[in-house]
Design a protein around this nucleic acid. Structure first.
Lengths: 162, 162
DNA sequence: GGAGTGATACTCGGATATCTGGTGTCCGAGTTTTCGCGG
DNA sequence: CCGCGAAAACTCGGACACCAGATATCCGAGTATCACTCC
């Protein structure tokens, strides 16, 4: 079980986009060169985030991406599900039905025990991700990083914005 | 993020193997036809379980597989990690280091915030799976299924064992 | 000088190749059973 | 009738193809900007 690389990119992008001022947008190209990742592929991830209404795209010459909502109203789970899909990792194929002897239908009214357990774990995973917002991520970030780095980042953003 | 199909098979197999009496083994072929899955591929999963000391293989003519430990000492997490690997789903590639300006090394002493959050969710997922044993799965099973089905299953196992 | 208009440059969006890892299959090594033979 | 031995049949174990989804890339659609022209 491996999470797509795009999830990591998307989360970092959301963190950067939180600093984009009202009315402006940061082009995908800039986001890509900031993180040192292939721009053409990052665009694909950003499109998924756009479809999920997590970021919004400003078209046109001085366009770009920006958060569609305040950073404290975007959870990490939102980003993960937008990029990775919301289907649970475990897919029950109901192989319990394939036993080589006849089983009454009533036995299958109750969900498969294994399915239940895996779903519970999946719910715990998602619940954990739902408790953390992009704003929280930024909070953890600024708490640990040197003020000098914050300044440099802000400066870089100034130059990158149209 | 998708969990391998073999995980489902492995869990169901572990549940069935819990009924194999002391000293005997159930061949992989029988397990495959019971679950209606390709036997050659199921063998691959069973080998992984064998390497992880979750099941043990009895070689020879009347050989087969059996649980290596009592069912209440095998957690669902054991099976999942044996088949899917124990590495966390999220892999941090430290893209925070690639920013196009110089960042002091000290900023990277603290683990990446995003990495931390994802790891915490991963831990919650694994913790949930660790609380459930194969014996618990069986308990949930016999609680809901009709006694008739249990009898049929026991009968099938009688015939399948050498 | 100001407004209108066309061209332009830059943006996003979806459709298109490539490649790694899961999926599926095969044959060889090893052990227990079993059958046959001799005592 | 019993013990021994060799062959056989069945088991697991690892090495070899195949395919779907993630990765990576491209080109087309659309819009704000800008420059130029005309009034």
């Amino acid at each position: 079980m491996r999470l797509s690389e795009g999830v990591e990119w998307g989360l970092h992008c959301a963190a950067v986009l939180a600093f984009v001022p009202e009315g402006k947008g940061l082009p995908a190209t800039k986001l890509a060169e900031y993180h040192g990742v292939p721009g053409a592929y990052l665009a694909k991830s950003l499109q998924s985030l756009s479809r999920a209404r997590i970021v919004e795209a400003l078209p046109g010459r001085n366009g770009g991406y920006r958060l569609a909502r305040p950073a404290d109203e975007i959870t990490v789970l939102d980003v993960v599900e937008a990029l990775d899909g919301a289907e649970p990792a475990f897919r029950c194929t109901e192989i319990r039905r394939r036993a080589p002897f006849k089983i009454p239908k009533s036995d299958f009214q109750i969900p498969c025990s294994i399915h239940t357990v895996m779903d519970r774990a999946d719910a715990a995973w998602r619940a954990e991700l739902r408790t953390v917002s992009i704003a929280d991520i930024l909070g953890m970030f600024v708490q640990h990083v040197s003020p000098e780095t914050i300044t440099k980042g802000a400066h870089w953003l100034e130059e990158a914005l149209p």
